[in-house]
Amino acid sequence: MNYWSWERFSDALPYVLSGLGTTVMVTLSSFLFALLFGLVWTFLRRIPNRGFNWTITWIMEFIRSTPPLVQLFFIYYAWPVIPVVGMTLSPFASAVIGLGVHFSTYIGEIYRSGIESVGQGQWEAAKALNFSLIDKWRRIILPQAFPPTVPMLGNYFIIMFKEVPLASTIGVTGILHMANSFGSQHFNLIEALTIVGIIFLALSYPSAYLIKKLELKLNNRY
């Protein structure tokens, strides 16, 4: 009965934790990428051209319906061998682009739902008061469109955080990668993987709580 050893647990802890910085960086960078790239989707889909709109919708659908793991492999292994446009990317950059683009398609939808939640009357009032295009968005539409999206964005942040271990498959040295490496050195994975689970719980749960708090605060503004 030596499948569990507290000694090995305490050896594994600092080792696995040494990957935490990378995991957090990949998460934050990918999410930032997704937030920005989501804007691009939202903007492209607002261009009033049926064929163009249809094309964008299907590109988004394609990205969303393909497993992120396959996308990561494609970016890391297949992209470099494509002539002209191909280039070799570091594991970190591949992970950020792969996860960022994948989740940007969901985030673009969230932005769209936020914009659509602003009633027709608000657009008409903005026009009647002769707002410029930029001021209409900045002062009337976005301040109303953004708050309802916060809980959804928060949920995707946590979902994405839990997908970050996929990046270990292309060699990003996050906590899962470190746990695997510890396990193969000590011929036992149970402690290291348990630590990974605990770290994810310890970070996801408070994040979800904070998002809930933020949501309540935003809902009671006016």
Partner: peptide, 10 residues
């Protein structure tokens, strides 16, 4: 002036 006011709620 609109039927449904259309004030800016924020």
């Amino acid at each position: 002036v609109f039927q449904h006011f259309n004030l800016f709620p924020h």
